[in-house]
């Protein structure tokens, strides 16, 4: 019974949103109610997500405290997590260090939280992203070794794009006769970007959108069996 009721909630909410896409923009009547409900939902989701933080925090702290208690391997690092979590939570909720106290902006760069962001989170974000340069090279090298037709095509087109974007790309192959100038990496990379890339990306986007639509319909029509399970 409870499961059926949950499915009714799911389908009703979803259908209201779908309906709002087809209804005209008016303030009153059924259309107005549906439209206003539609505008509420994103905010409601973010409010629920904040409540869910409690679940996440209890899982995070619980698992690290257990590690510390049981003196598991690398338990010392769990102390770092628990302490840093507690400190940031306290200074953030109290808005410590900001010019206007609680009335100030939570992400004020002068506050303790703002300084923690700029000295800890910001460099960590940037460095992790910069690792991608190394990882891209290793992934490309491995694909080159696999030597299947598909990965070769992927790598060749990636190489043409990279070479085509180099400042001296137009100088390369400038010796080619006029009839073959289109083979110059800068021209070829532009063509690849505008023609095969357009076709491939659009085919992916169309099929992905169909996938999303079908999954969404599956849940709205109540065709998903694994929707509301129990928990141990």
């Amino acid at each position: 019974m409870k499961r059926n009721l949950a499915q009714v909630v799911l389908s009703t909410v979803a259908l209201l949103i779908v309906l709002s896409a087809f209804l005209p923009d008016t303030d009153g009547g059924f259309s107005g109610i549906v439209k206003s409900a539609d505008s509420y939902f994103p905010i409601w989701f973010s409010i629920i997500a904040v409540f869910a933080f409690v679940l996440g925090a209890s899982s995070l702290i619980g698992s690290h405290v257990r590690k510390i208690k049981d003196r598991e391997t690398d338990w010392q690092y769990s102390v770092v997590t628990v302490l840093s979590f507690a400190i940031v939570l306290i200074v953030g909720l109290a808005k410590l260090g900001g010019a206007s106290g609680l009335e100030g902006d939570v992400s004020d760069p002068a506050s303790v939280l703002g300084r923690i962001f700029s000295s800890v989170l910001s460099p960590l974000h940037a460095t992790l992203f910069s690792l991608l340069a190394f990882y891209m090279a290793s992934a490309a090298f491995r694909s080159f070794r696999i030597r299947s037709l598909e990965t070769t095509v992927l790598l060749v087109s990636a190489s043409i794009i990279i070479i085509g974007r180099l400042p001296f790309a137009s100088k390369l192959f400038s010796f080619l006769p006029d009839a073959l100038q289109w083979l110059r990496p800068d021209k070829l990379s532009l063509w690849m970007l505008l023609v095969p890339n357009t076709a491939g990306q659009r085919a992916v986007l169309i099929t992905v959108s169909l996938g999303v639509i079908a999954v969404a319909l599956k849940y709205i029509l109540g065709m998903s069996r694994d929707m509301f399970g129990g928990q141990k």
């Binding site: 973010s46 840093s84 939570l89 909720l93 989170l121």
Partner: peptide, 16 residues
């Protein structure tokens, strides 16, 4: 571990 602790709390504070 510092990243996890700081960022988890940071996003929770922002959410609050």
């Amino acid at each position: 571990h510092l990243f996890v602790g700081v960022s988890a709390a940071y996003w929770m504070v922002l959410g609050f």
